[in-house]
């Protein structure tokens, strides 16, 4: 009962192949919206930024705020903490890159490049998420007086740089700018 065709086989084959290909293209295009819908939506992507009043954060105090669903640590570091971090040689660091979204991607992880910059070295603003598997490290703890992640034991120093443990990178620094001495805009 199969269709014995009198036309030359090449033409028939071409028709079948073309139809099959068109079907595959159609199915693939149809699949796209189903995948596309899983990506972050327009409201999530819209540059969300927050303004934080830091006037109440005195020396040695920390503030945690939420930005894009993540905790942001804002710490007014003591001179000792700043000095400890400054006196650490770059060679002693596990990750020598600053990971600062406000600087070039290859900026070195000096304390100045990690902090809010010249004149504001006491301020450290970073995303409070351990770069290992996403837990939130505890402040003012650990061997280096910085942060300690209770999940898998990563230890960060007073500039939020990874010093020991399984985490691969320094804690990330979000884009931010000081609008005044008391207000900072994150994002």
């Amino acid at each position: 009962m199969s269709a014995h065709d009198t036309a030359e086989p090449t033409r028939r084959d071409f028709l079948y192949i073309a139809t099959g290909m068109a079907g595959v293209v159609g199915a693939a295009s149809l699949a796209w919206p189903f995948i596309d819908q899983m990506r972050p939506d327009a409201s999530t992507l819209a540059a969300a930024s927050i303004e934080v009043d830091i006037s109440s954060v005195t020396e040695g105090m920390s503030l945690t705020v939420k930005w894009r669903g993540k905790p942001i640590f804002i710490r007014n570091r003591t001179p000792k903490e700043v000095d400890d971090a400054k006196n650490t040689a770059l060679s002693a660091l596990k990750d020598p890159v600053a990971r600062n979204a406000n600087l070039a991607s290859d900026a070195p992880a000096t304390d100045l490049e990690r902090s809010a910059g010249e004149g504001k070295e006491n301020w450290l603003i970073m995303i409070g998420i351990c770069t290992h598997l996403g837990c939130i490290p505890l402040g003012e703890s650990g061997e280096y007086g910085g942060w300690f992640c209770p999940c898998h034991g990563s230890t960060y120093d007073t500039a939020g740089r990874i010093r020991s443990g399984p985490a691969p990178e320094n804690m990330a620094i979000p884009p931010y700018e000081f609008l005044s001495d008391t207000h900072v805009k994150i994002g």
Binding site: A3, H4, D5, L15, T19, G26, S29
Partner: peptide
């Protein structure tokens, strides 16, 4: 545009398959 072209192709295939039945 795609569906109309695709319908045309499938129609030709259908005609070919059923040609001798």
């Amino acid at each position: 545009v795609f569906l109309v072209l695709f319908a045309g192709l499938v129609y030709l295939v259908k005609r070919r398959v059923w040609a001798n039945v």
